[in-house]
Amino acid sequence: MLLIHCPYCNETLPEVEFAYASEAHIARPTRPSETTDEDWAEFLFMRSNVKGPLYERWRHVHGCGRFFNAVRDTVTDKFLTTYKAGEPRPDLSSLTEGLK
C-alpha cells in the first residue's frame, strides 16, 4: 500500500484515504462551445499514458477532501512529489536527480 503526502494536510498517509483522479494539467476549455470537435476530443479522451513519471491528480477523499497534483512513476509506482492544485508543473529533471 502506498503512502501519499497530502500537500494541504502536510501529512503522509495511507493510500486508502485517497482516490485517484486521472491525469493532471488537462484544463477544461474555458469556452467549450467555441472549441472544434478535434480540440474537444483531445481534451475529453486523449491522455499521455506514459511509461515513467506521470503528472496526475489525487483527492484526499477521506481526509481534507482536496484535489491535488502528484508526479508518480508508473514503472516503479513511486511518488516523486505532490503539490497543490494550481501550482505549476514541477520540473522532472529536478525530481529524478535524487533517485537511486
Partner: peptide
C-alpha cells in the same frame, strides 16, 4: 459529490 467537488475545486475555483 466527488464530481461536483472536482469541478468546483479545479475548474471553477
Amino acid at each position: 459529490l466527488n464530481m461536483m467537488e472536482d469541478y468546483l475545486q479545479t475548474e471553477w475555483s
